[in-house]
Computed example of a mutant assay.
Amino acid sequence: MPKPLRPGELRLETAPPEGPALRFIGRIRSPWGPGDCPRNISRARETGRPARVELDPAYTPALLGLAPGRAVILLYWMDDARRDLLQQAPAHLDGPRGTFAIRSPNRPNTISQSTVMLTGVDGETGVLEIDAIDCYDGTPLLDIKPWMPRIDTPPQAPGAQAHKPRR
């Protein structure tokens, strides 16, 4: 039984999946395909080629509060990636690494993430314009989270601010 709604809350009309299941909330539209996709978001930004996110209409109300200029984390499903590699030998490294030590899309669960800048937000159509992305056109989108420096910057990282506990 779902909890009662608080004032201002809006519930998804269709029931969420039961148990450990994922639901795609949209698709990423990029200029990339097999053979020309940058291997990371930094390289994608260097090309100057923007991209967009197309949300399933059921999720457009969840965009409330997002605006151009905001950084968000996109979580997406790399559906063409391998899921059987425990160690990999990327060409840019000096030797093999464990899958959990690199950012390759080839992993047990092919969830990838990129922190992107919103350049446009259309809450009516559910389209987000973004500065760049490093995945194929049509990649399924799992989630969007706001990037927050106090939460998402690791301690001891250059430029990180000391975390002050809330009272």
Rank of each mutant, 00 (worst) to 15 (best):
H163K: 13
R103D: 13
C135I: 12
I133K: 01
I25A: 03
N109G: 14
L85V: 04
V127Q: 08
R52V: 00
I144F: 06
I111H: 06
R70E: 05
G126M: 01
P90W: 07
A157S: 11
P96H: 06
P31R: 07
G69A: 04
D122V: 10
A71K: 06
A91Y: 15
G19V: 05
P4Y: 05
A71D: 03
M148Y: 09
D122M: 09
L93W: 15
A15G: 01
G19N: 05
T47W: 13
R107V: 04
P20T: 11
T60I: 10
P50M: 03
D122A: 10
P31T: 07
T125H: 08
T139M: 07
E124W: 11
R103P: 06
R27W: 11
A157D: 02
S42E: 13
N40R: 09
D122F: 12
P4T: 10
R97G: 04
P146Q: 14
R166K: 14
E124P: 04
Q156L: 15
R83G: 06
D56G: 01
P154E: 01
D143R: 07
D131K: 07
P149T: 08
Q87M: 15
K145Q: 13
A15E: 12
R6I: 04
D84L: 08
A160T: 04
W147G: 00
L85Y: 07
R6K: 15
P155D: 08
T125W: 05
P50D: 03
L55R: 00
P155F: 09
R107K: 11
P34K: 15
R6E: 13
S30C: 11
A132Y: 07
I25T: 04
I28C: 03
G126C: 06
K164N: 15
S112V: 11
L74P: 01
V53W: 02
G138I: 11
H163P: 04
L128P: 02
P108R: 04
A21K: 13
G98R: 14
C135K: 07
L118I: 09
D134Y: 12
L118W: 04
Y136S: 07
L93P: 09
R23N: 03
D137V: 13
